[in-house]
Design a protein around this nucleic acid. Structure first.
Lengths: 199, 199
DNA sequence: GTTCGCCTTGGTCAATTGCCCAAGGCGAAC
DNA sequence: GTTCGCCTTGGGCAATTGACCAAGGCGAAC
C-alpha cells in the first residue's frame, strides 16, 4: 500500500480546528457554558493555549460554533432516522429510543440545554439556533402532516419541547425511561384527521 | 400609631441574608449559574462583599440555597393554583397561563433550567431538587388520579417536562404561546378511565 | 460605662481568566 | 538554499475570581 501523503500545514490546521471544536463541545456539557476556559479547551485538544485565539476570534466564537455544529449534527441524525419511519407511532418510537441512549450524563444531551440558555444571552447564537430548530421542526411537522396528525406544526413543537424537557429532567428523576413516558407521549399523536374526532 | 421598634442586629442580619439570596437568584438567571460572582451578588444586594462569606459558607452554598428557595416558592405557588382547579382541563389552563406570564426573559423561568443543569454537577443540589420535584409531581399526579386521568404518575412527569421544555424553547421560538400549544397539550389528558378508550 | 455578641466593611492574597505577542517550526515554491 | 506562508508555542499582561482577615460599628445586657 502506498503510504498516505503527509498532511499539508493547512490540513493540519483544519484538523486542529476540529479538535478544538470537539473539545469545546465536550467541556460545555461537563462544566457549563460560562465555566469553559481557553486553557481547558486547549489542553483537552492537546494544543498550546495560544492556538485558540489563532483559529478563533474569541472564546465565545469557538463555543458558538462548537455548540451549533453539534446541535446541527444531532438534528440531522434524528431527521434521517425520522425519514425511515412509516407511521407517527414508529417515528415516536425512534425518538424515544434516542432518549434512552442519551442518559443525561453523556456528551450531547446536555449540550442542547446549555445552548438554549446561552442563546438567551447571545443574539448571534440565538438566531443560529432558531434557524436550525425551525428547519428540524418543519421537517418533523411535514412528516406528521403526511400522516394526518392534526395541528402538525404545534404538535411538532410540543413534541420537541417535551423531549428536551424529559432529557433535562432525567438526571434528577431517573424513572423517566422511554418505557414509562412512551405511552403518555403517544397520546400526543392520537386523533388524526382520519380518526373519529372532528373538532 | 406606635413607631415600629428598631430591628435588632440579628433581624438586620436575617434581612441581609434574604437580600443576598434574592440577588443570587436574579443573577443566576441573568448571567448563568457559573458566571455569578461574589462581588456581583454583594453589589446587587447593596452590601459589602465580605458579607457573602460571613453569611454563607461559600458562593456555591449561597447559589444552592437561592435556587432551591426560588424553585420551592414557585412550585408551591403552582400547587396552590392547581388545588383550585375542578377538572384536569382547567388545571392545564392554569398551568398554561403561567407559561404565558413567564416569557423566558423573566427572573424565574430560566432559573429552573439553570438549576437542573447545575444539579448535574452538584450532588447536594441534585438531591434537594429531586425532593422538591418529587413532591410537586406527586401532588399533580394525585390531582390527575382523582380526575380519572390514566397513568397519572407518568402523565404528571411528562406534563412537567413538557412545560419546562416549552419554557426553554420559548425565547428561541416565540411562536410557542399557550394558545398555540394548549390544544396539543390537552391531548395528554384525554382518554380518562371514564372515557371511551379502554386499551 | 463597660462588656459582649453579632453584623459589616474594605483591603488583600493567590489563582485563574481572556487575550495578545515575539519567536520559532516546517513544508512548499522557486 | 532561500524565501514565503501558515501553523504553533509558551510567556506575559491586566482584570477578575473566591476566600480570608483585621478592624470597627452598634445595640443589648449588666
Amino acid at each position: 500500500m502506498a503510504p498516505p501523503p503527509p498532511p499539508t500545514a493547512a490540513e493540519r490546521g483544519h484538523e486542529v480546528r476540529q479538535r478544538l471544536l470537539r473539545a469545546g463541545a465536550e467541556l460545555i456539557t461537563e462544566r457549563g457554558w460560562s465555566a469553559v476556559s481557553t486553557r481547558a479547551v486547549a489542553e483537552r485538544a492537546e494544543v498550546g493555549q495560544g492556538l485558540v485565539h489563532y483559529h478563533f476570534a474569541s472564546l465565545g466564537a469557538l463555543l458558538r460554533q462548537a455548540a451549533l455544529g453539534a446541535v446541527e449534527a444531532l438534528l440531522h441524525e434524528l431527521t434521517v432516522l425520522l425519514k425511515a419511519a412509516a407511521t407517527p407511532q414508529e417515528a415516536l418510537e425512534r425518538i424515544l429510543s434516542t432518549l434512552d441512549a442519551y442518559s443525561g450524563t453523556d456528551t450531547t444531551s446536555l449540550l442542547f440545554t446549555e445552548t438554549y440558555l446561552a442563546a438567551t444571552r447571545d443574539e448571534e447564537l440565538k438566531s443560529g439556533l432558531a434557524r436550525l430548530l425551525t428547519g428540524a421542526r418543519e421537517e418533523l411537522a411535514g412528516h406528521l402532516r403526511v400522516q394526518r396528525v392534526r395541528q402538525p406544526q404545534e404538535t411538532a413543537a410540543v413534541l420537541m419541547a417535551a423531549v428536551d424537557g424529559l432529557m433535562l429532567h432525567r438526571p434528577v428523576s431517573p424513572s423517566l425511561s422511554s418505557a414509562a413516558v412512551g405511552p403518555v407521549l403517544r397520546r400526543l399523536l392520537i386523533g388524526t384527521n382520519s380518526g373519529g374526532e372532528t373538532a
